[in-house]
Write a protein that binds this DNA or RNA. Structure first.
Lengths: 150, 150
DNA sequence: TTAAATTAGTTAGCATAGCTAACTATATTC
DNA sequence: GAATATAGTTAGCTATGCTAACTAATTTAA
């Protein structure tokens, strides 16, 4: 362990590792709440893109979610089966499909978000106000960084 | 959308949602690096617990990773098959198993971390120094919060 | 103006990772 | 010694990721 000390002491190394760990454990816990909505994280994330970003083609959705088309194809099929999205073919190009959230889908997303935030908020209460502020800022830094990744 | 404005304007709501989104997208990207190690995130996370926390029983590992025993049982079986961990029965209690990382397992973990940090570091260079510092602090706040969750 | 190439999405089939229910084996308790 | 409790496993389901190979539609080019 001692010989590897120089490696672990590099600050980006530590940030990378701790960030990885935090993301894994955060998602594991939030996933349990999401089970109550009856939908998994990939579906919720796709719904979120549709609700906040408006209708998208399958390819656009796959790109936004950084998954391959077959993966998104199956996710959309599931959402459509549950009437959370509506699929229509693009009149301009019959290969494309327009995917939009239904009112049912929007409602589901709001409820899930509500559930998540109520749980998270109860935990955030344990933080000092300045910690919450710091976290808030960093989440935006993180999201900006993620948005700019190649 | 307008009618729901009060909800979305609550700061914890926004932090929760953005954090959720950031965690999902961060993990999707890191997962792609981890593919190069030939191991999935659950395996890497379990290895990390073993390497940094020392040998554990299956139940302890499952608890640390917040998954059910059957899930961890399969993960450990895969790690053992690949000789990344060694399993020995506890002489005190034959029901228990002592799971420890092998040198091969430790090496794999170091390499994966190395790969991750090199990728992350290249992205972190795009941040201002004070943003990196802020992120670093917040990751610790987050990890503390996660550690204290019931 | 057809033929070739490209693009959008689907289908089939594989792996990982989560779960519950039901099981085996060992320890503990009464 | 019998009943109960505990540690892990096995079987089988779901969801989510992938690649390879396909269909259908559009665009490009001969």
């Amino acid at each position: 362990m001692k010989v590897k000390q120089e490696k672990t002491d590099r600050p980006e190394f530590l940030v990378a590792d701790r960030l990885h760990s935090a993301a894994i454990h955060l998602l594991r816990r939030l996933r349990k709440l999401d089970i109550a909505t009856g939908e998994g994280p990939a579906r919720l994330s796709a719904m979120s893109v549709l609700v906040f970003g408006g209708p998208k083609t399958l390819g656009e959705l796959a790109a936004a979610e950084q998954v391959k088309p077959p993966t998104m194809s199956r996710i959309v099929a599931g959402l459509a089966r549950d009437r959370l999205v509506e699929v229509a073919s693009d009149p301009e190009d019959a290969r494309r499909m327009r995917i939009r959230a239904t009112p049912k889908g929007e409602a589901m997303l709001w409820q899930g978000r509500q559930r998540r935030v109520e749980y998270l908020a109860s935990q955030l209460q344990l933080l000092k106000p300045e910690e919450l502020t710091a976290l808030q800022d960093s989440v935006e830094i993180l999201n900006r960084m993620l948005a700019n990744w190649k």
